[in-house]
Structure formats: structure tokens, C-alpha cells
Simulated scan of single mutants.
Amino acid sequence: MVRTPRNWSPGTTYHVTARGNRKQDLFHDDEDRRKYITYLQETKEKDPFTIHAYCLMSNHIHLLIETHDVPLERIIRILHTRYAVYFNKKYDYVGHVFQGRYGSTKIDTPSYFIKASRYIHHNPVEAKLTIHPETYPWSSYPFYIHSIDNPLLSKERTLNYFPAPQISRYKEYVEKEVQHKES
């Protein structure tokens, strides 16, 4: 069965999600997570796009991705095919690694953009994997908060939505949810 192509235009930003088949883990260890990040970087180098935020959970991923000249479906197809081949070979599995088609929600306003960024960065806290999002190593959030450069990540658009001091304002925005739950 042929899938209907998704609407796409250059410069569109999406919140992309993908889950492991039957809700199973996509990542069994840190080597798997590093491999996914490596494939993401290599895909970006081959078919340029911008990553504004990411988070690798055990059984799903979140990407805040802005396309340039290559459709989102090509980017995700290349990335997820490469990862699935690696994963199946490493664990001697066969069949689908990802559950169905990836999800993508078009980000069409600045408000929606920063809410998606907060949601992605706050996801490990919601899943009770950490108390503070900055300590979760498989998210782009520590790179924002600790001003660490990451060739995969573009922080400018996100931080430009916040007045000076931008990093502390963004941290306050993301962690506002955490502070309310601890009170």
C-alpha cells in the first residue's frame, strides 16, 4: 500500500515523534543512543536541516526539526532505516524497529515552538527518569543550560524568544513545571 505524501514546504518546523514497535525499547544501552545521535548528525550533514531540540527516551524519540531543501519524510526515512538496520543486526532481531509511521506536528507559531521545546526537554522529568531535566544526558537541554556547543544543535532561534539573560530565562521557563510539582 502506497502512503500518501505528507504536506511539506522548505523552512517548515516540526515536532517529530517515533516510538518503538509494540512500545518496545528503541535503545537498550548508551551505545544505541550514541549510534542514533551519530546517524542523526550524518543525515544532517548529507541533507541539511536544523535541530532545535531532541530527547531520546527508552522507547521513543522527540525531535524539534526545521527542514531546508529536503522533505522531512526523506530525512526520517534515511535516519530510521539506518538505525533499524544497526539495531536489528546488533541484537539479531528481524522486522520493524519503529511502530508505524513517525508522528509530525507542524510548528506554526512562536508560542507553539517554545512550548514544544519545553515539552521535549521536560519529557524525562515527566517519565520520572530524572528530577532535573539538565541532568538527563540524552537530551539537548544540558547543551542549552550549560552553554555547551553541539554541532548537531542550533540554540539561537529558541533562545531569541527570551529576553536577557536568555539562558536563565529559558531554564526558568522549562523548569517552571518542575518547581510547581515539587512545592
Rank of each mutant, 00 (worst) to 15 (best):
D47S: 03
K90H: 10
R19K: 06
R77V: 02
Y39H: 08
D30T: 07
H68A: 06
T38I: 12
D29A: 06
R77K: 09
I78N: 15
Y86P: 00
F98L: 10
S58K: 14
D32M: 04
R33P: 06
Q41H: 14
A84P: 03
Y86Q: 05
K89T: 13
V85H: 02
C55V: 06
I78Q: 15
I37L: 09
Y86E: 04
P71C: 02
I78V: 15
F27L: 09
K46S: 07
Y54V: 05
F98V: 04
R19T: 11
R19M: 13
Y102L: 08
D25R: 13
A53C: 07
I75Y: 01
R82A: 11
F27C: 09
D29Q: 06
I65N: 06
K89H: 13
L72A: 02
Y36N: 12
H62K: 01
S58R: 07
Y93A: 07
K23S: 14
R74N: 09
D92C: 11
N88I: 07
H28D: 08
D32H: 12
Q41T: 13
A53M: 03
R33Q: 11
R101F: 02
D25F: 12
Y91G: 10
D30W: 11
I51V: 09
L79D: 04
Q24W: 05
G95R: 15
Y54P: 02
I51K: 11
Q24H: 05
R34N: 14
L79K: 00
V97G: 13
M57N: 06
G20T: 14
D69C: 05
R82S: 02
H60N: 04
E73K: 10
K46I: 01
I65V: 01
F27R: 06
T43F: 03
C55F: 00
N59H: 02
P48Y: 01
F98E: 09
K23V: 11
Y54N: 00
Q24P: 03
K23D: 14
R82T: 08
K35E: 03
E45P: 10
D47R: 00
Y86M: 02
R74G: 13
N88K: 09
Y86F: 07
H68W: 10
K46C: 09
R101G: 04
I51R: 05
I65C: 04
N59P: 02
G100L: 01
V16P: 09
T67L: 04
H15C: 03
T81Y: 11
Y39D: 07
S58N: 14
R33A: 07
N59C: 03
A18S: 12
H60Q: 06
R33L: 01
K23Q: 15
I78K: 14
L79T: 06
C55Q: 06
F98D: 12
H60T: 01
Y36V: 04
Y83I: 04
Y36Q: 11
D29P: 05
H68D: 12
D47Y: 02
V70N: 04
R33K: 07
P48L: 03
D92F: 06
D32T: 08
H52C: 04
T38C: 14
D30H: 13
H28R: 13
K46E: 05
T81F: 15
I65Y: 11
K44N: 14
V85F: 01
Y102V: 08
E73Y: 10
T50P: 03
R33Y: 12
R22D: 15
G103S: 08
L26M: 07
H52D: 02
D25Y: 08
L64Y: 08
